[in-house]
Design a protein around this nucleic acid. Structure first.
Lengths: 238, 238, 238, 238
DNA sequence: AATGAATGAGTATTCATTCAT
DNA sequence: CATGAATGAATACTCATTCAT
């Protein structure tokens, strides 16, 4: 029952290459304008300035066209992220975090409208796996970064889990900003918040934890006010 | 082009009321089983044990039926959250955060299968606004909590923005856990991570920020211990 | 890959019964006029004075419609034949043969144009089996007749094989007459030939067989009782 | 509405000739493998190792290609039959009949798969006439044979009609055997039955005819010369 | 002559919606 | 009020045929 989403044939002549390009580009536009349902093969072909027949010459069905579009976008997306990660191998944790944040934000600047539609529609094209793979790969990269700085992390922070949390959080915040609050992006405020939330997460132990869940104030000494016990105990900066 | 999604008439008799209920319930089941495309009016009517004609007696079109379902679900969802918030008005920040986290997790336990479908399909029903409203209301509640403990927050934390960040983050993590990693939910690990990331975010200054973005260890004098990252960063210790 | 050719639903109201009838009748006409390819669902629906939707309300696809038509025709066809056979149970061999011949001719008078199309197109509707079943049942009936008169048959005639030969021969001759030479039908000439060929086949020993296949003359008794006048006239063996 | 089925141009170069051959051969194979519907011009061209364009260089349309194939096959078919007839001009009636039977069986051995498809599909190519011509020519040949032995035939047997009957019968039996009962062919049983039915038909008067259709016994001469042994055994008229 | 890219009318089928009963 | 038969616009997809290269 699964549908073949493999492109039908590879264009050999220059002319047909142009057709394929036009089709994908048209698919992107029509998808953005009309959504998945509204993106009829006829409309896509028309927008591409090509006949339906030509569409089916290169894609065996509608899904395969969308799949190709997803692939193109996903590849650009992942490309952007991995490039941003490239220089992080022996960066500090701080640099690493900043790079990750930037990477996400930058990647989301690639055709955000299409990205939105694709994210919404991807489940029904059965390409969910591939897209989830993006997030999995990013999570893996984050985990590597964390492992490289393991001693800097709170001892209760499991790197794999933390990576998942970070990836999920960043993705969500980036999304929110891109789609609903672009001004937070332009002003750089969102980036700061992202850094704040991540660095807080990776520092320990958070001050709040010192207070009992019952609201009783734990008296703190003035000097130690913001230092955590472990920091002090570890004597790292002693 | 916009479609009227208002229910057609209000049921006055008990029998009609039963029909309306059966229809919504049927819609829910069919949606879960067959997805949005597969949820034909015929199927819904059949599942409800009612004729198509009757369906259209109460809902002018398919979308309005789904809209009603969304409304029912959203209302239950927000209800669960707001109830969880109710006792928080003069709770401590810690209690408040825990309540928020719990609220989200609990709400997601209401018909998660339907929730998933609805979240995916909602954009195309044009009820996005309503659903976004949920998140807006939750954000508002969080903001109130933060404002009640304003002095506990890092001074650079804008309560409105922080509330947005928190809401977004919690929603994303809850989602991820519900859909992809339910075992993290059962073990309570996710809840701990949520608390960790939020408390870190609301504590200050995070230790990590004390280190320069360039990875070089910035030797810190004891006095500088309390300097915020930005302060440190801005002044470059110079 | 096989297609479901079961009718979709049984009509409950008088109105829908009329629709179903109209559809089959229209299918018959359109099939005759345009052949299988030309018999588009649109054309059939139009001819039936009904919308395409209605067609698909009762038949899940084009094939099932044709299958229904085949069934209707085959049933009438077989009905005619078996009725004609009914009175043959204890008839003489001669009466039996005449009844069989008549049965075939009569059955072929039921909508011969449709019969022709159906016979041609049946292979591709996958109802071949059912139709072949007709011929198999008829063959069986013939075999029974032959067995009832076994002692009258030439000893070398296997009843099952003879039945197959008879059925095939009758079917072919009937067909030929119906389609290409209707005048032979009207004049009763074909019926006579059919009887002649069958009775010759079931009599023995045929004169011709007395001559060896190698042309060597088989010595016969003087009286040459079996020589025909004309044979005698030839004086070949005189 | 009628379509031109004339080949477009006659190949003049060896290369073109090869192409034309390859096309017909490919058409034959594809037709057998995929049936008429499945035999697309693209598939035929591909199988022939030629482009669609080339196909249309030699055949103005699909039908003309099939027509050419039909012609090729029909010509081989008739060729085989007429060759088998050639030696029959002054053969005995018995020899003639055997030759006819053999001819039909032999002809059907030429690409029976293609023959089957062609027989089924031929009506829709509008080449029915040509194919019917085969049977007409064969009938003519049979008629000639019969006329050559006129005096051997029962006086009531009209040679033209008898030829039609014989041709039809043989064709049907051959077909049946080829398609449904090949074992009857291999064992030679069918051939025997064919000879039996024909010789019975051409002998006269058949015994059965002596009995009235009403079962009344027709008084016969004392010697009962034509009574079969078994009949005698019955002692019905003893 | 050959190629194969492009065409687009034509086909089966679905499904939200209406309306006669 | 309820029913379910009827509607028909809309959609994905095919394939014979043309024509620029």
């Amino acid at each position: 029952m699964t549908i073949d989403t493999t492109p039908r044939k590879r264009p050999r002549q220059a002319r047909s290459h142009a057709t394929v390009d036009a089709l994908i580009e048209a698919a992107s536009q029509v998808l953005i304008e009309h959504g998945y349902e509204g993106a009829t093969t006829a409309r896509v072909a028309e927008r591409a300035g090509v006949s339906v027949g030509s569409l089916y010459q290169y894609y065996p069905n509608k899904e395969s066209l969308v799949a190709a579009l997803i692939e193109r976008h996903a590849s650009a997306f992942v490309g952007a992220i991995e490039q941003a990660f490239a220089g992080t191998v022996d960066a500090s944790l701080e640099e690493g975090l900043r790079a990750i944040i930037r990477a996400g934000l930058d990647a989301h600047r690639i055709d955000p409208a299409l990205h939105k539609i694709l994210v919404e529609q991807v489940p029904r094209v059965g390409r969910m796996a591939e897209v989830m793979d993006i997030s999995r790969r990013v999570t893996k990269s984050i985990e590597q970064l964390l492992r490289a700085h393991l001693r800097r992390l709170p001892k209760e922070r499991d790197p794999a889990l933390a990576a998942l949390v970070i990836e999920t959080t960043l993705e969500a915040l980036t999304h929110k900003a891109v789609i609903e609050r672009p001004e937070l992006l332009a002003s750089g405020k969102m980036e700061k918040e992202m850094y704040a939330i991540l660095s807080g997460y990776l520092s320990s132990p958070p001050v709040l934890e010192l207070r009992s869940a019952h609201g009783a104030q734990v008296p703190r000494k003035k000097k130690a006010a913001r230092r955590t016990p472990r920091e002090a105990g570890e004597g790292r900066d002693g």
